[in-house]
Structure formats: structure tokens, C-alpha cells
């Protein structure tokens, strides 16, 4: 709109560990790069659920009737990433959304979906309102380790594999302190910066980064984790959102 600054853009910067990032996690010359990532998992309240589901296919079982909550792909990124994860789990691809949308439709027809939320219902989960929450991993680990749910919560990565959302950052053009910004960007991609992310339960983006075993032990291991391709998924955004609305509502 009228009052938006016109000269938005990025300065290129290749911080510490830039070379180690996988190709999908960065712009070739450093206009943007991934500082951490978040995987889709099942966050299960064991007080409300007898058997923890292990796969997307499990979620369709009749025993999970009225149990599943996830976020709306029309208003949240996590909802979109979940739809992609379900799509890949069902044999779909970036070009073929049909298997994922068919899964969503079957999930809703089965009566297993309790609610689709427009905002993150973290407090609701911790209060015991939600049996199974399909969401990013960090909320589950936070509930488990920081907010007292402990062994009452299972944080499970789906057997078919999951999808990780890259969280990216850029050096904004014409910022007043570019050198301070570069120091900050270098720090968060350093071993120490990445360890701090891991301590906060978000997954480090630098593969094989040196993190203490005690910190690593708290994170979730994945059968398979695919980093979301931002360009390919963005090209399908409207198709995904409209397809989801047709399948789910």
C-alpha cells in the first residue's frame, strides 16, 4: 500500500557455515539462508490417547475418532507444511497434490478431526483439551520438557517420513548497521548459535553441527526428513489452499 517503503531488498551475505547448508536451505549467493528448521510431528497427550499413532496412515484408524487437531493451511504455514508431509507420505509430489488432498478428505470423512485451528492452540494442548496435535516439533518438546507434561506427552515423527519447514533470514538492504547485522548472522549459524536453537527445541539447520549429547538427546529422531522446497511449494500455494478447502470443509 501507499505507505510501504519502496526500496526493499537484500544485501548478499555468506555467513559462517554457509557452505555446509544444503542447496535447498539457501540462496546460491546468500540473499537468504536457513537458520533453523521445524518438522511436522504428532504431539500426543497420552492421558487422552491409548495407543500413540506412528504414521499418517494410523491417523485414519477409527480409534482416533474426534481426536485430531491441526492448523488451517489457509492461514498458517504449519498447516501448509503438514499438507505437504501428508502428500509425500501418500506418494504425492510437488507437481501432484492429489494423494495428499485425498488423505485430508478421508481424514475429515472418518470423523477423526476434532478441530482445525486458525492460531496455535498451545495453551489448549497443555490444558488437556487436545488428544492428538499434528504440528511443528518444538511445541511438543516445550510441552514435554518445559511445561511439565513430561512422560504424559509423546512427540512422534511419522514412519513415512516428515517434512521440515526452513526458517530463513536475510540481510535487509540499507539497514543502518550492516556490520552488526553480519556479526549476528554469523553468530546464529555458528556452532554456539545452533546449539542455542537446539536448546530451545528448534532443529539446527547446519547438518552435523557440533551439539552436546545432552541437548541432542532431547530432540526427535526422524525416519526421514525432507526440507521443503520454498520455490516449488510457493508455486503450488493457491492450489494447495483451495484444494485443502474443497477436501476438508
Amino acid at each position: 500500500m501507499v505507505w510501504m517503503p519502496s526500496a526493499v531488498g537484500y544485501w548478499r551475505h555468506t555467513p559462517v557455515n554457509f557452505d555446509k547448508l544444503p542447496a535447498l536451505a539457501k540462496h546460491p549467493t546468500g540473499e537468504w539462508f536457513t537458520i533453523h528448521q521445524l518438522e511436522i510431528v504428532f504431539i500426543v497427550n497420552k492421558k487422552l490417547v491409548r495407543t500413540t499413532p506412528r504414521s499418517f496412515e494410523d491417523l485414519l484408524k477409527p480409534e482416533y475418532r474426534g481426536n485430531i487437531v491441526y492448523l488451517d493451511p489457509r492461514s498458517t504455514g504449519v498447516g501448509q507444511v503438514m499438507t505437504w508431509a501428508a502428500n509425500f507420505a501418500q506418494g504425492g509430489s510437488y507437481e501432484n497434490l492429489a494423494p495428499g488432498l485425498s488423505f485430508i478428505e478421508r481424514l475429515h470423512k472418518s470423523g477423526n478431526v476434532l478441530r482445525v485451528m486458525g492460531t496455535t492452540p498451545y495453551a489448549q494442548f497443555v490444558k488437556g483439551e487436545i488428544p492428538i496435535w499434528v504440528n511443528f516439533v518444538n511445541d511438543g518438546l516445550r510441552a514435554k520438557f518445559l511445561d511439565g507434561m513430561g512422560d504424559d506427552v509423546d512427540v512422534v515423527s511419522p514412519n513415512e517420513g516428515t517434512v521440515a519447514a526452513p526458517y530463513t533470514i536475510s540481510l535487509v538492504k540499507n539497514g543502518p548497521n550492516p556490520n552488526a547485522a553480519k556479526l549476528w548472522l554469523n553468530f546464529i549459524l555458528s556452532d554456539e548459535g545452533q546449539r542455542l536453537f537446539a536448546e530451545g527445541f528448534v532443529t539446527p539447520s547446519v547438518p552435523g553441527v557440533n551439539i552436546p549429547e545432552t541437548v541432542r538427546a532431547r530432540l526427535v529422531t526422524h525416519a526421514k526428513s525432507t526440507l521443503l522446497d520454498l520455490e516449488k511449494s510457493a508455486a503450488q500455494l493457491t492450489a494447495l489452499q483451495q484444494g485443502w478447502a474443497r477436501a476438508a470443509l
Binding site: 489457509r74 498458517t76 504455514g77 492460531t119
Partner: peptide
Amino acid sequence: ALALVGSQVNILPLQLFTMVSDAGA
């Protein structure tokens, strides 16, 4: 409505919310 029933209940204010949040275009 947003906090209680989530965005699956199709009412106009929640449609508007869905359109202006993160993913709206």
C-alpha cells in the same frame, strides 16, 4: 470464535481472518 471453534467453522469474520493472516494474498 477463533480461540474456541477454530477456523473450520465458516463464518464471515473468520473468513476475513484467514484472508488477512500469514497466508492471505
